[in-house]
Amino acid sequence: MNNFAVLSKKEFDQMIRELKIIWLPVVFMLLGLMQPISMYYLPVILEKLGGVEGILIDPTMARPDGSEVLASTLGSQFDQLGIIILVVAAMSVIQAEKVNGMLAFILTRPVSISSYIGSKIMTHYFLAIFSIAIGYAVSYGYTAYLFTSVPIPQAILAFVLYCIWLLFLITLVTMLSTFFNSPAFIALVGIVVLLLCRMTAGLHPLIGALNPAGVSLRATSVLATGSMGDWWEVNIIATLLIILGMALIIHYWIAKKKF
């Protein structure tokens, strides 16, 4: 437990020195801004570009509800560009130390593999939550200002659900980072897997319930419709089990010294 704290502190120090703790939240702040602003100006943009001929846009029709805007911040910004950025930010979480020998070196000390993996996942998960929370808060504020405000309990519930999906994302990237030595390859595989999950989640209710990305969809639906949908318990449990499974695979992989 003590070593877990030492390793986690080191990770945080590193994030501060490398300024990751600043640029990642800033990126998500911008992503969070983009959705309400672009949706607010969409009618204007369309009008300017389309001119007066052709389709006529009724400004009162085009203005969506605040909850829809916030839902699309999660669904269209964070779940697309956001995923790519998070994967790139976390891709060398273990790979870098594997390649430069620090991993093996650290393990010659009385450090348990669990505290090593735990510190890695925990700190990067924390960074992801922190960044997304800032982006989400900015988005929430702008949505309330430009559109209508979303009830806070609903916004928080959606965020909590989204954090489960984030934990899956971070654990997956950590696992890939343990397997492969090339950061580019880790990022590629990670992004493809996550986007595939995201795309298949809405296809069938059963697939959705077993798919970690289903949790992300539920977060958006909490915002848009106020309901988490059927089988949400199954979905959350399945996701947590998948995360646990991946953590065990990482542990096995390092214990067998396959890195």
């Binding site: 070593n3 590193q14 490398e18 620090m102």
Partner: peptide
Amino acid sequence: YLPQYPNFYSWMTAFETLLFMGKLSG
């Protein structure tokens, strides 16, 4: 243990490196 090519975190100072490794040893 001393590896053949010891590698450390380049962003740490020598003092911090020893502090880190020492703490890991309890």
